[in-house]
């Protein structure tokens, strides 16, 4: 497993799907570990009742069916597929609506889904998913990207309420790939995947949704910033190490 995870850290992030299916076929005995530890690009299905698209993940899957957050029904239909309790389903419906607005304000498009389920410790787990196709042909408002994929996965464990407080543990993953392509600069692709965690105890007075939302907004913003500033910055630094920028060279090399 360690070696498999080592490979996933080196293979180009935009090849994750191929790499994962290769590992699954090489080590079928580790398939559940692989599926839970390797994040893969999110898939989408259309809810037949509402006509809206929803995101597929391990958390809304039972057998080969996936539960839609819009109709609460499994696609393809499944008898006795697990559903959250009535109370939790109420929160799930609200979270989906609010998260749709959040997603629209930050992403100007894309698809989002929120799933919730009870866990063993009298708390619950919520999974907030966003998928955005930022390419020219997708939801790219500005039309700069030949290809642009963003997948965000936020899994948040909410502990039982104690004296008006609850413990929140958020794990966020962002996977992205962006490609620009034009005559003068050729093909330029950056792809990446990073994951971070955040733990806090918060008063439940403001409501779970408010607490979870703020945490997700903060961590998602941090992930975006570190991709932009740190990770992309480091690859740029590497390019400049390989070939220092022109102005430095010209200082030493007057034009002949």
């Amino acid at each position: 497993m360690e070696a498999a995870m080592g490979l996933m850290r080196r293979i180009p992030p935009n090849q994750t799907e191929t790499a994962l299916s290769a590992l699954l076929s090489l080590m079928p005995e580790h398939s559940s570990d692989l599926l839970s530890q390797v994040d893969q690009p999110l898939q989408v299905l259309c809810d037949v009742d509402s006509g809206k698209e929803f995101i597929l993940c391990e958390y809304n899957r039972d057998a080969d069916s996936y539960r839609s957050p819009w109709s609460n029904k499994y696609h393809p239909p499944l008898e006795d597929g697990p559903c959250p309790s009535l109370e939790l389903r109420k929160l799930e419906i609200e979270a989906n609506e609010v998260f749709t607005v959040y997603r629209d304000q930050y992403y100007e498009g894309g698809i989002s889904s929120v799933y919730m389920w009870e866990d063993e410790n009298e708390g619950f787990v919520a999974c907030f998913l966003i998928k955005k196709d930022g390419s020219k042909s997708g939801h790219g408002r500005r039309g700069y990207l030949q290809e642009g994929a963003w997948d965000a996965i936020h899994v948040i464990e909410v502990g039982p309420e104690e004296e008006g407080m609850a413990h929140y543990c958020l794990t966020s993953t962002v996977m992205l790939s962006l490609t620009t392509n034009n005559e003068s600069s050729g093909t330029f692709n950056l792809s990446g995947s990073i994951r971070r965690q955040m733990n806090t105890d918060l008063s439940v007075a403001d409501g779970h949704l408010c607490n979870m939302g703020k945490m997700i907004e903060e961590l998602e913003g941090k992930l975006r910033n570190s991709l932009d500033q740190v990770y992309f910055g480091k690859t740029k630094e590497m390019v400049c190490t390989l070939r220092p920028p022109a102005e430095l060279v010209e200082m030493r090399l007057p034009d002949s």
């Binding site: 609200e94 607005v101 930050y106 700069y144 962006l178 620009t180 975006r224």
Partner: peptide, 27 residues
């Protein structure tokens, strides 16, 4: 300012953090 923005903006279109305290308006 351009390419990455098509994936996700740094700030929402409203240019302020999302009003999680006041989500009643949305539901």
């Amino acid at each position: 300012d351009s390419t990455f923005k098509d994936l996700r903006r740094k700030l929402p279109v409203t240019r302020t953090l999302f009003p999680w305290h006041n989500t009643m308006q949305f539901s």
